[in-house]
Design a protein around this nucleic acid. Structure first.
Lengths: 158, 158
DNA sequence: GTAAACACCTGCGAGTAACCGGGGTATACT
DNA sequence: AGTATACCCCGGTTACTCGCAGGTGTTTAC
């Protein structure tokens, strides 16, 4: 019961879960086909990136509600990026995925001990630096990185 | 089955869980009483920082196995810092708590897709920046921060 | 040498979240 | 109409966090 007492906005993880990776991979796939105006189907993305399609469906729904992708229903439907690939940062993706339904609940700061406040402050600093890194990469940057790495692989193969 | 397919060392979280906070609070308490050579009992720490004592017992065991605290059994026993407060960094604490038993299992890098490698690279960068922040704070620094904040609270009260 | 105080170990149970699949409904193309 | 697709609800497994209970081993105090 009550678990930890306070439920501040301390729950922003920085781990690379399958959830996050799947979402980024899907967005990367959408970004790669951004020039054609045709939407990509879930199964195409899933097959291309080796993601379980039923799970990807949920993730794309979350991304849609977060305003990162657009959907088109019916036959020949699918998903499209809501904005240009260079206008979507990784920070938006990560924030969208774990936003969930956490209510900060307007916590009374006087209840916290001094020690807790100090710890909280440092963790905020860590999150801040993580945000900066994520903010610094757009989907376009990721695509460029992928292309560069592909070139390297080819040269290594020869 | 198999969950994610690969089990690289991607599992270092940056969230502030109760687990981590409890451990840091306990270490802070030990650091505060570091000058007296007498060990602190679990219940004393638990009562002082409002931590469930049975749970704190497990955390202190982990910290002991990680070499961060020393224990003294029997009556008049308890826990002591294994090193000076200015020689223990937050990075050591965090690493100790979730080190668990994850074997990197020498993963074959050729199985990863190019996209996954790109994502992995960025997450490594995030972890690196987080490490640097944690590495920059010792238990002594935390104590100093606490004292400074206490002074502020007093002045604010007047 | 007996009792008390303490660390130490194992295990359990509720809660939560990530991770997947089933099955049905709504919508658009042909 | 029929088909293909997104959309939605609802389980189910696994794993982890948090916390409690019971028992054992070790040291000090009387």
């Amino acid at each position: 019961m009550e678990k930890c007492g306070w439920s501040i906005q301390r729950d922003l993880k920085v781990e690379l879960s399958c959830k996050t990776e799947y979402a980024v991979l899907a967005l990367l796939e959408l970004a790669a086909h951004y020039r054609e105006a045709e939407p990509l189907q879930i199964r195409q993305i899933a097959a291309q990136q080796n993601i379980p399609d039923r799970y990807l469906e949920q993730l794309l729904a979350t991304l849609r509600r977060g305003g990162l992708v657009k959907s088109q229903r019916g036959a020949k439907g699918g998903y499209l990026l809501a904005r240009e690939p260079w206008e979507i940062t990784l920070l938006e993706v990560v924030s969208c995925l774990e936003g969930s339904d956490s209510k900060p609940s307007t916590h009374d700061t006087n209840l916290k001990t001094v020690e807790s406040a100090v710890i909280e402050e440092i963790w905020q600093e860590v999150h801040k630096t993580a945000y900066k890194v994520w903010q610094g990469y757009t989907l376009q940057d990721l695509c460029d990185k992928r292309d560069a790495r592909r070139q390297l692989d080819i040269m290594y193969y020869i």
